[in-house]
Design a protein around this nucleic acid. Structure first.
Length: 418
DNA sequence: TCTGGGGTCCTTCAGCTC
DNA sequence: TCTGGAGCTGAAGGACCC
């Protein structure tokens, strides 16, 4: 669910398409989470529905187009969304269901071309140059995909067809909902130049403000500004990149295999917390979670980053790079708690804590040496035993004694298990 | 209005080495 | 021995995406 919506320029027709020079498809599921949730609630089809967190600090994850008509957008605080659309039905997220549909949709894509680059759970780029002989021109392939996704999964998607990834992504956004937009190579510059600068991928609120200060409102304005001016205002990389995009230059290819660069987890408390012992327990829980995900992915990380967000929403991070990569919960926890204690916070009111591991490599290639004081069968073996137990008995079946509690003052809904 | 959770990438700065 | 610059790396923070 895109946070910003742009109307399709009148000059571009969605009619019988000229797809000359187009081999990149961007497929974006329409209101994905809400659509999948409605598969089990057919009585709510055609009504305003919001999927999102129901805690005191929940935000909108997705909303049906009926709810969006009232001004509801993703990432909006739930309290505000319900003020805008008081008749909406609120459904809690069902992440496993979304993952299953996403996997099935991805299988449909890979049956058409091996060049599929998933961008998130609900969108992907496809390079269909190699499928043309078998399946026809890109626009016909796009229609085939839309029909198959609707038939097989019961949800709709929109597709942008263009010569480059970034134009295809813009086109799919403009085709929503349940549509297709083709931008042939010869029309790319004209298509781009009538859009507002905020439509460009990578221009958010701050960058848009910086561009407005330069008097730049449309992509055409940006394209006709000297690149040195943009670099001065936005930095070398961003300035050059946006200037290239404004002229339709985007050499990025569809890359089916993208390596993960970091794995992390963070948690916003329903209420601000000022109890250091409670924070340490949460860091243990998050360290366990991150380590488990690293092991599941067969990865180890070297840099441990602690994130702390205070009650006033200011956020700090502290990082430490270890001598060797690790996927051991205990190592991550010891490092992150050391970073936390080095902050010297007394009773600061904390809203969120997070743990992230970066500089990740495959564990099989990681140089792992036992520490001098590490027992022969150390925490690494214990972690693997926990992984095996959880695989057999379910998540949370084995956990640290410190995480076992009858009552959680900050998460009343939590029970004995995490 | 009051801001989740999972990420990536970029910029700036400091410390280190040569 | 001291100093300054270049280049590298890591840390921190910000912006952005879905």
């Amino acid at each position: 669910m895109s946070r910003r919506q742009f109307r399709a320029p009148a000059a571009v027709s969605p009619g019988p398409p000229d797809d000359t020079g187009c081999s990149i498809l961007h497929v974006d599921m329409d209101a994905f989470f809400a659509s999948v949730s409605l598969l089990d609630h057919p009585e709510l089809v055609g009504t305003p529905v919001i999927v999102g967190g129901t805690s005191t600090r929940g935000v909108v994850l997705s909303a049906t187009y009926e709810a969006r008509a009232s001004g509801v957008t993703s990432a909006m605080p739930m309290s505000r969304a319900l003020r805008l659309c008081p008749t909406a039905t609120v459904l809690p997220p069902e992440h496993e269901k979304y993952a299953a549909v996403s996997k099935a949709v991805l299988a449909t894509f890979t049956s058409i071309t091996p060049l599929v680059e998933p961008l998130s759970i609900d969108e992907a780029f496809l390079d269909v140059a190699g499928a043309r002989r078998l399946l026809g021109p890109p626009s016909r392939i796009a229609e085939l995909i839309r029909a198959r996704v609707a038939d097989e999964q019961g949800v709709t998607c929109s597709i942008g067809v263009a010569p480059t990834k970034f134009v295809a992504k813009l086109a799919s956004g403009l085709a929503k909902p349940d549509g297709m937009l083709v931008v042939p190579a010869a029309d790319v510059v004209a298509f781009l130049h009538q859009l507002p600068v905020g439509a460009l991928w990578g221009v958010g609120e701050k960058t848009e403000e910086a561009l407005q200060r330069l008097g730049l409102r449309t992509v055409a304005d940006l394209a006709h500004t000297p690149v040195t001016t943009l670099r001065r205002a936005l930095g070398d990389a961003t300035g050059t990149h946006l200037h290239d995009l404004a002229w339709g230059r985007d050499p990025r290819r569809v890359e089916p295999l993208r390596e993960e660069k970091s794995i992390g987890a963070d948690e916003t408390f329903p209420y601000d917390v000022d109890d250091p012992a409670y924070i340490r327990r949460e860091l243990l829980r998050l360290s366990d979670k991150v380590a488990g995900r690293l092991r599941k992915a067969g990865l180890s990380g070297r840099t441990v980053t602690l994130k702390v967000r205070f009650a006033d929403f200011t956020t700090i991070t502290r990082a430490r790079t270890l001598a060797e990569p690790t996927d051991v919960s205990r190592d991550i926890f010891a490092t992150v708690v050391g970073l936390y204690e080095a902050l010297g916070l007394q009773r600061a009111r904390i809203r969120l804590v997070g743990v992230r591991m970066s500089s990740v490599i495959e564990t099989a290639r990681a140089p792992i040496q036992g520490l001098l004081d590490e027992p022969e069968h150390g925490w690494r073996d214990a972690d693997r035993a926990v992984d095996r137990a959880e695989a057999r008995f379910g998540r949370g079946s084995v956990t640290s004694a410190a995480l076992l509690t009858r009552r959680d003052p900050y998460f009343p809904q939590r029970s004995d298990r995490n």
